[in-house]
Amino acid sequence: MATLRVPALMKMYIGNQSEVTLQGTTVAETLNDLIFRYPAIKFHLYDDHGELRRHINLFVNEVNIKDLNGIQTPICDFDRLILLPSISGG
């Protein structure tokens, strides 16, 4: 079981939580578990082509999955994932 940290921007789609525990052996499986449990977040993660939206970054233990193996990056128990969208407020 890994934990996923969700930003203020998106927590309304997962029951107003900022952290959720998920199952899966890869990032893709973990996100599938997230979407299965909270379908409303899917639109905010994936574009019409099923790709992770370009303004969204996902980090596994502080490393961007773009610098690992993308959504096929393996996930182990106790891994910490962070969802990072761009925000513009100033």
Binding site: L9, H44, R53, R54, H55, N57, P85, S86, I87, S88, G89, G90
Partner: peptide, 20 residues
């Protein structure tokens, strides 16, 4: 490098809309 593209218009609210 981090954000190659902006979010689709309207998807990420500003502070004037979402608050801070």
């Amino acid at each position: 490098c981090l954000f190659p593209e902006p979010p689709p218009p309207g998807m990420v609210p500003s502070c004037g809309v979402g608050g801070v």
